[in-house]
Design a protein around this nucleic acid. Structure first.
Length: 963
RNA sequence: GCGGGGGUGUCCGAGUUAGGUCAAAGGAGACAGGCUUAGGACCUGUUGGCGUAGGCCUGCGUGGGUUCAAGUCCCACCCCCCGCACCA
């Protein structure tokens, strides 16, 4: 039968068997230690892919491992429907977005019939939930499905839980109202996030400082990021052909571009247009500096963009390359000024005013920069680059010169904020938000910045809350440890987080109609809901019954059960059982996610647990890398998107699981390569065959050296896999459980020449259990053939048994490996075809000297002198002092440099019977080298030793002679 | 820019916390042999270079340094990936 068929049948068989036996359903059991592990519910706007599979398989492997260790393990599952994306996807289908529909049809495998129904977001979500649930089951994840749910008001009982959660946060002052600038689509009437943009990904609103220069009865609010340069102003730039307005802005008259006036209306300004005109109409007029009433000219600047901030720009030619080039353009071409009726001389007279000192530049950095880079004129693209470079330089290392009044002598980078503050207080400055680059919504509408009022925020800026989150973090184990610093940085960096939106699926904010709880907010403490959802479903408890009092009782033990039961009409015993179930399972023992959730979900998870469940803080957090596909980032549009289902169809569950697990651990990004997965599949089939062979042929009861060796090394594998699993090093664990053990078996077979030992079958029992968390299906099948009665999924995890460790057997085996290697090496170097190979084991006195040296070097480095002194206290050695001293010279360095654990091991086992060990391996060596093997003691008078090799023998290093 | 993670042999990928067992696990690929004969199957071995005796040389991003000894420690530099907010 083909590989796939056998494995597929096995999978089907055991998936059903597990389901029927309900072995993954977990109920509280006070006699057993519990372990609750979760995987973040995934968003159902598409099918699960192998990226989900990677993290989830790590979770399941851990869960299975813990279950086998005897823990009462709960692994629940749920689905995330909250947010705008599903609704947005439906919208795109309604609009007939071909590219999008194509992706759903070809990658997700959605039928035409279903596609039509996708215009209903609820249908879409439930469709993907159904498909994904099937894939999750096929993967062999050991889930208690009785606790399953999905989010949003479409699951009213869960919605009630979210309401409760929000109320409690609100009460504690962690949800507050505030006002914030956002990128806004006027057509969609909602904020436009990065993913919803056609143009302008990554563009965020920036706050421009507006320096207000008086011009007649109005102000020219010039927009800048560098308000400190006001000390170097020489003139104003206005685009002559752009549309400007004079407008009443919050009680003042401003001259700004018409576009700017519209923008300001979205930013909480009261705007009344007084007049409209082209820019040229104010060119040639004078304005004054707010600092000292210095009079300056408004000049034509064609580089000015009316759609950037106010469309009014002040000129600092000493420090701004654009300003200098534009001024130079006018000075060099007086004819440009004619049409504006400006006197060319007065423009010629304008000199750059130097006001920042910066290393590497003289008086006028902008002038130098323009010359260095050869910027031709204000239309030259290099002007932009020059501006950026100089800005950076002056910001980081610039110092304000004496003409800057009270700010003189200060570093630009250090005084900027306080200067803005100061100017605003004095009424010289104002500000506005704008986008540094154009942003266009997916609906093709250009976006603006809108100041949103009365939004609801999670107050992550709260210092006390941050402290609690950090404490929660410090109490949790984090795997890998290197993620801790990242979490700490994120906790510090987090500020207000908008926690409600106007559109999309979700739970309405209970106290503020029209707002819907945002997706990251409703996914912070929902794991607590798993503990009680079993009862909610079992007893058909309705949402209306789940009042805040009920949750308060369940989670906090607040109130009188009798009254709570009466009021909610939930049976009292049920309530009590829910309460104790929560107390049993919570806190969470482990939550694992990909690292992309560190800056948001996982940190929020900590914050919210610290706020709502301070007595039930998560015990551990696992973070892993993000899976790529054939070396590239997974993406539907690029076509390299692998759904879990397609992986299962092609490779089966065990291979998919193992390939994912072997892909990586820690924060490194694993890679999915179909070639690899195929190889893993073949490997697993090989394992299956090997195991069957061992089971069928086992009959030899005799336990010899090699059997002892195998059982001994197996102990190290057990220890290794166990220790790595404890810290979620799933890759290392899988690698050891699959390949390293395999190699042990292989070496055994090679040495022994046959595989009919019962010990081998016994070792297989251990091996199968070690591998079961990773490849549960095939292991279940083999286990069944060995044991027949129980599930390997419930079998006892192998225990490291120090009694079974046989260091002497291990050293003896490593001696054989070394001799094998040395012999091969000699054969390679000499290109001989051996007829006869002689091995000479080291003489007893050498062993004695060797062990003396090792023991002596345990505590401190030894010298040749010291060693000799000690050796000479033995009369037998003293008789052969010359030989001994020659030998001692050889071993003193070896003893000193030997790693401690190896030295300890050798000291502990005293010595191996080298001669005997080699004798026993004679037939093995004969088979390997196809030559006659002779084993002698180095001082054996009968030895065949024409080249006098025997005396070279050292402990663990027999001398070799080949002919 | 800020923050996090990385750069290892043909490729993937351990090892770096505690320097020596490291020419460097394991897997893949390649090569050779077996099996058997067309199957991308299975088993075994080899896989940095050199070498007529178990050795030597070169090597873990680059350049320095510490040490008897460095992939592992210190300093400087270069390069790659990821996150940076109203979005799941």
């Amino acid at each position: 039968m083909a590989v796939m068929d056998v494995l597929r049948q096995i999978e089907e068989k055991w998936r059903k068997a597990w389901e029927e036996a309900r072995i993954f359903e977990a109920d509280p059991d006070p006699n057993r230690k519990k372990c609750m592990v979760t995987f973040p519910f995934s968003y159902m706007n598409g099918p699960l892919h192998v990226g989900h599979g990677f993290t989830a398989t790590r979770v399941d492997a851990y869960v299975r491992f813990k279950r086998m260790q005897g823990y009462n393990v709960l692994f629940p599952w749920a689905w995330h429907w909250t947010g705008e994306t599903i609704a947005g996807a439906s919208e795109r289908i309604k609009d007939g977005d071909e590219e999008f529909i194509h992706a759903l049809r070809d990658i997700d495998g959605v039928s035409e019939e279903n596609l039509k129904k996708f215009v209903d977001p609820t249908y879409m979500a439930s469709y993907y939930t159904k498909v994904s649930r099937k894939a999750v089951k096929r993967m062999g994840f050991s889930i208690d499905w009785r606790r399953e749910f999905h989010t949003t008001s479409l699951c009213p009982t869960f919605s009630k839980f979210i309401e409760w959660q929000c109320e409690r946060l609100h009460e504690k002052g962690y949800i507050v109202q505030g006002t914030y600038p956002v990128v806004w689509c006027p057509r969609c009437e909602s904020p436009t996030g990065d993913h919803d943009r056609q143009v302008g990904e990554g563009v965020a609103p920036e706050e421009y400082v507006l320096m207000k220069f008086k011009m007649g009865d109005a102000y020219l609010p010039a927009a800048t990021f560098r308000p400190e340069t006001i000390y170097g102003v020489t003139n104003m730039w206005i685009h002559p052909d752009a549309d400007y307005v004079k407008a009443q802005v919050n009680g003042e008259q401003w001259v700004i571009s018409e576009i700017a006036a519209n923008k300001l209306e979205e930013q909480k300004r009261k705007i009344a247009i007084i007049s409209k005109f082209k820019g040229r109409e104010i060119i040639g007029k004078h304005f004054v500096s707010p600092l000292n009433n210095r009079k300056m000219l408004v000049l034509p600047g064609w580089f000015v963009s009316p759609s950037n901030a106010t469309g009014v720009v002040y000129s600092v030619p000493a420090h701004a390359p654009f300003d200098w080039v534009a001024l130079r353009d006018l000075q060099g071409k007086p004819e440009l000024l004619k049409e504006f009726g400006i006197d060319a001389d007065s423009v010629k007279k304008i000199q750059p005013i130097s006001m920042i000192r910066v290393d590497g530049f003289g008086e006028h950095p902008a002038v130098e920069m323009v010359e260095r880079m050869g910027v031709k004129d204000q239309y030259d693209l290099k002007a932009e680059e020059a501006t950026k470079l100089l800005y950076k330089k002056e910001f980081h290392s610039g110092v304000l010169k004496d003409i800057c009044g009270e700010h003189s002598g200060k570093m630009v980078s250090e005084m900027k904020e306080s200067l803005i503050q100061d100017f605003k207080e004095k009424g010289f400055a104002d500000s506005m938000h704008d986008l540094p680059q154009p942003v266009v919504c997916r609906c093709l509408t250009p976006c603006v910045v809108k100041i949103l009022e009365d939004q609801w925020f999670l107050k992550y800026s709260d210092e006390a809350w941050k402290e609690k989150a950090k404490e929660a973090l410090s109490k949790a184990s984090v795997y890998p440890k290197s993620a801790i610093q990242w979490f700490l940085n994120i906790i510090d960096w987090l500020r207000e987080w908008p926690c409600a939106r106007k559109t999309g699926l979700g739970t309405p904010l209970p106290w503020s109609p029209g707002w819907i709880v945002e997706t990251l907010t409703d996914s912070t403490v929902y794991m607590a809901f798993y503990t009680i959802n079993k009862h909610i479903k079992q007893y058909d408890i309705k949402a209306a019954q789940l009042s805040h009092e009920v949750f308060d009782y369940l989670f906090y033990g607040r109130g009188d059960v009798k009254k709570v039961a009466e009021k909610s009409r939930v049976n009292r015993q049920v309530l009590e059982s829910m309460r104790s179930e929560f107390l049993y399972w919570y806190p969470l023992d482990l939550r694992v996610s990909a690292k992309e959730l560190v800056p948001n979900h996982l940190t929020f998870f900590l914050f919210h647990h610290a706020a709502l469940f301070p007595k039930h803080l998560p015990k551990a957090i696992g973070v892993n890398g993000v899976l790529s596909i054939e070396g590239k980032k997974m993406s539907k549009s690029k076509g390299n998107f692998v759904t879990l289902r397609s992986a299962l169809d092609q490779y089966g569950a065990d291979a998919t699981r193992c390939a994912l697990l072997l892909g990586g651990e820690g924060m490194g990004d694993p890679d999915w390569r179909s070639e690899n997965v195929r190889d893993v599949r073949v490997k697993l089939k090989g394992f299956y065959n090997l195991a069957n062979g061992v089971i069928e042929t086992a009959r030899e009861k005799k336990v010899g050296h090699l059997e002892e060796w195998l059982i001994s090394v197996l102990q190290h594998r057990i220890k290794n896999v166990t220790e790595n699993m404890e810290v979620l090093k799933t890759r290392t664990a899988t690698e050891n459980a699959l390949f390293e053990v395999w190699n042990d078996f292989r070496w055994y077979a090679r040495r022994k020449g046959k595989t009919d030992s019962k010990v081998l079958k016994h070792a297989l029992e251990t091996w199968v259990r070690l591998l079961a968390p990773f490849a549960p299906y095939v292991c279940e099948e083999i286990w069944n053939k060995i044991e027949s009665d129980d599930f390997v999924s419930l079998a006892e995890w192998p225990r490291y048994d120090e009694q079974k460790v046989n260091l002497r057997a291990e050293e003896a085996e490593s001696l054989i490996k070394n001799v094998l290697e040395d012999t091969s090496n000699i054969l390679r170097a000499t290109k001989m075809v051996p007829k006869k190979i002689c091995y000479y084991s080291a003489a007893p006195w050498k062993w004695k000297a060797y062990l003396t040296a090792l023991k002596k070097s345990t505590s401190a480095k030894i010298t040749l002198n010291d060693l000799m002194k000690e050796l000479m206290t033995h009369s037998d050695l003293k008789e052969m002092a010359k030989k001994v001293s020659k030998f001692a010279r050889q071993i003193v360095d070896e003893a000193n440099q030997m790693p401690d654990d190896k030295r300890n091991r050798l000291v502990k086992i005293e010595s191996v019977d080298e001669h005997q060990t080699l004798r026993e391996a004679e037939s093995f060596f004969e088979g390997e080298f196809n030559a006659k093997i002779y084993v002698y003691g180095e001082e054996d008078p009968q030895r065949h030793d024409p080249k006098k090799k025997a005396e070279l023998a050292r402990p663990y290093r027999p001398a070799i002679y080949i002919e």
